[in-house]
Design a protein around this nucleic acid. Structure first.
Lengths: 196, 196, 196, 196
DNA sequence: GATGAATGAGGATTCATTCAT
DNA sequence: AATGAATGAATCCTCATTCAT
């Protein structure tokens, strides 16, 4: 029981990972169950053994990666040592860009949830996204409290910052003139200019 | 001929405008030819007299709006009076947000062109977008030249700024707590903080 | 406009008639859109030009024939001349058996509507059936009023009678020992025995 | 062997009983192997250890119930005490209605066997049904022989009566205005009117 | 120019069935 | 005996596209 359950979970993750790659290449509507199955050398029907339907599968793709990213951000945010808000934020920017870049295939923050998800799946997606965004609110607030940041309308500012960060997936290409670390530095530099 | 040509052109624009409204609401994949036709009290078939196919039509929607936005931006950029770079940029931000707000989907800069457009349509879209972005580069450069802005790596900074601006589409809702004008002010405020 | 409308209606009826034959041979679930289309030398897709979906098509099949039967029964019931209730009823039996026999392919009173129809289609089917049954109630009631019939619990009795009549489709075969007219006579004889 | 055989038989019956309940609720096509298995806390696959395939299983459901009904009818018919044909018939009506009411679908005499059963299963079903009907012929004949009934064309009359009885399935609902016993009385009353 | 009608290529989903373990 | 997993055929339905009139 234990074993088969674990095996099933592993398989589910395997499917998710493969599906994520396809979804991010072709988009939500552009991806077919057929294609996902084929990439795994399975048949369409088998997918339905592991996922209720396409919406479910795609939803779990999104969830899978976003949850991981959230966990990373939270760890960074909860670090107990006396790190300044600026440094924590910079670390968070790094994490975000890491996901957007290395896991581009998996964390599509760009798609509009309302178009991609319906009914029962929409709400959890929105919740998770809100949570994700909230982590940035938290660090901004902390910076303000500690007198490190000066922010007018923090929510709008956070929206602006996240927009800039998300946009990375649209244009950053590996092997560009600048390294990822360069970009992270520049972004952090710009963002701190806004917040100070 | 002349007359009929002109009439056809007018009809084409009429279709575009109606289609844009629908695309804005339902998105690219969510829009059907049927729906576009119905809204104009035409039949599906007739659309094919004016547009080669759906991709063509949607492409032209995008083009139509983006071109108008470009024209607006250019007019603002070319205004000969001695406006400061800051003020010009603020005006440009206003224009962008206006379009992002009112023409949501047809000016969907968030869409990855490589996903949405194929073959003959991809290249013009990319070109126009590059042009659009270039207008922001231009104003930044001007500000730098005139000693008004101080920018490190202007392209990266512009990408960041445009990201923040494009993202507006995803979250600005009419009747929110803040008015569009408030948001424009806040965005300009933040952006100028980066650039100064 | 007139013409094309009329042509469409004719086509719709053509489809219905063909579909009716198939549905009655294979049953509701056993019939596929493919099959219906093939029988008409059309493609599946075309059916959807005329009918919203399978439920709609099947519903209209049922409706088409049942409505005709109802009309026939009503004409017979409303005949102004001083026909006795017995004679009217006999005529109605004849009509019912006529449909069950000659139009066996089309009037399947046997299928359980609740299983075959869903949502929006169930209610009209039930209503029409109730109406059909009501016509028999009417003649029974008339007979009672006129002192011609003596009936205890007319609804139950009518249910019993209609059951016996509907059953005809299960066993009457053309070219049996008895003619249809024989069967009608025998049924009328038995039914009148119940009612008198 | 003996023991395991007996255990298998018991299991088979257990499955049948559970399946019958489901089939009664959802009908032949509406029932899935999955569902039957789930109700028994088994998996789909296991069912195939006990039954060749779905047709087999459903056929045996039908058989199981119909055989029991036949047995009940026969017991009633063979009762040696000097019961009148009328009383025997009334008892048979009671049995039929009891089954029609409680075992709705699995004793679905309304289903056209040729539609539901194929190949090897069709013939036994037809045979059993014929036998079932024959029991009613028998009592009618006995009544005639004993001078209790007067029947013209007994086969047609029996068809009519059985039709009325089978139809019960379609309309009797628990908690109606009349009790089952009321309905049995009324049916018997009407049927005897025909036969006398 | 316009349209009614038809088409056909998919795509999601269901489910009976199989089979290695 | 049982099951988890996989399969594939079948089925409904959508929609861009075509074309004769």
């Amino acid at each position: 029981m234990r074993i088969s359950e674990r095996r099933a979970k592993k398989k589910r993750e395997e499917i998710l990972k493969s599906a994520i790659a396809i979804v991010n290449k072709k988009g939500y509507e552009g991806t077919t169950m057929e294609e996902i199955a084929a990439a795994l050398l399975m048949t369409k029907g088998s997918l339905y053994y592991y996922f209720k339907n396409k919406d479910d599968l795609i939803f779990q793709c999104h969830n899978f990666v976003l949850s991981k990213a959230v966990k990373d951000l939270e760890k960074c945010l909860r670090a107990e040592n006396g790190v300044s808000a600026s440094d924590t934020l910079k670390k968070m920017i790094e994490i975000h860009i890491y996901y957007a870049f290395n896991q581009k295939e998996s964390l599509n923050l760009i798609i509009e949830p309302k178009k991609a998800y319906t009914g029962e799946y929409l709400e959890p997606v929105l919740r998770l996204r809100k949570h994700y965004a909230g982590l940035f609110d938290e660090i901004i607030e902390r910076g303000v409290t500690q007198g490190e940041f000066v922010v007018h309308e923090p929510i709008i500012t956070r929206q602006f910052i996240l927009g800039g960060l998300n946009w990375v997936q649209q244009w950053v290409r590996p092997n560009g003139r600048l390294t990822i670390d360069d970009i992270i530095d520049l972004f952090a530099y710009n963002i701190l200019k806004i917040l100070k």
